[in-house]
């Protein structure tokens, strides 16, 4: 609401990197009169307007964003040492400036993980997640010729748990936060969702093996159950799905 609305003057310490193989470094900028009502990315917009206005040699800061309502999974900043910034269960685009104080210095970094090379500034390449999905993150049905939607009853708790896993937005906060650069939470969300549903059971073994193999091939790290991913996941995807992935993977390997 209007009351309690304040203006902030801030120092931003932003990672600037011209390209994938370029040498990056932090640069400091100041922004003034930022409303506490503004979202974090709107503050970044203001910074960029400023950089365009002043013809900054590095140009505006490149960062990924799209829907700005916390669902597309495109935004991806590491703010003051936390994926998606200092608030829980939200994405960067849902972070508001009221979480900061006047005079704060805010460190803004890109996802840093071997699996996510930097494209420019704060923008990273997360196509590895797509590749993992292409390896097996689906039920092999083609369009048409499927049974009636109500032909297979699914217990509500299973459907609900599958939905919990399916809430993943593929933003990459899990691997970005993980000290091992592991993508297990992302992979497990899909494996677990489909393993819970009868539709996905037919190829559950194949899927678990294929997705894990792809994940390993792409150089993601090994899960050591720190649980940091779950805590930083904007959609609170639980590490219990990792346990299910482990189980599915073991089952798949025992079978053959």
């Amino acid at each position: 609401m209007a009351e309690g609305h304040k203006s902030l003057n801030l120092t931003l310490k932003v990672w600037r990197q011209a390209g994938r193989n370029a040498q990056g470094q932090f640069k400091e900028y100041t922004v003034k009169d930022i409303s506490t009502e503004a979202s974090f990315l709107e503050m970044m917009d203001i910074l960029n307007e400023q950089l365009i206005e002043t013809a900054d040699p590095d140009g505006p800061v490149a960062f990924d964003h799209d829907c700005r309502e916390g669902i597309c999974g495109m935004c991806s900043l590491f703010i003051n040492g936390r994926a998606h910034g200092p608030d829980d269960d939200i994405t960067t685009c849902q972070l508001h400036m009221r979480k900061f104080n006047d005079g704060d210095k805010i460190t803004i970094e890109p996802w840093r993980s071997g699996g996510f090379p930097i494209i420019k500034d704060l923008m990273v390449d997360r196509s590895a997640y797509d590749k993992i999905m292409q390896a097996g993150g689906f039920v092999s049905v083609s369009t048409g010729g499927v049974p009636d939607a109500n032909a297979i009853p699914i217990p509500k708790p299973d459907a609900d748990e599958a939905m919990d896993a399916a809430a993943c937005i593929g933003c990459g906060a899990c691997a970005a936060t993980c000290k091992n650069g592991s993508a297990m939470l992302f992979v497990s969300a899909k494996v677990s969702q489909l393993a819970l549903l009868p539709q996905g059971k037919a190829e559950a073994a194949k899927r678990a093996k294929a997705m894990v193999a792809k994940m390993d091939e792409l150089g993601f790290g090994n899960c050591t159950n720190t649980g940091a991913c779950e805590l930083e996941c904007p959609k609170s995807v639980s590490i219990s799905h990792i346990a299910r992935l482990n189980r599915e993977f073991l089952k798949a390997n025992v079978k053959d």
Partner: peptide, 13 residues
Amino acid sequence: ARGKDRYDSQNLP
């Protein structure tokens, strides 16, 4: 897998 670049600061929950 973590990559060469480290975070300048990381405050895990």
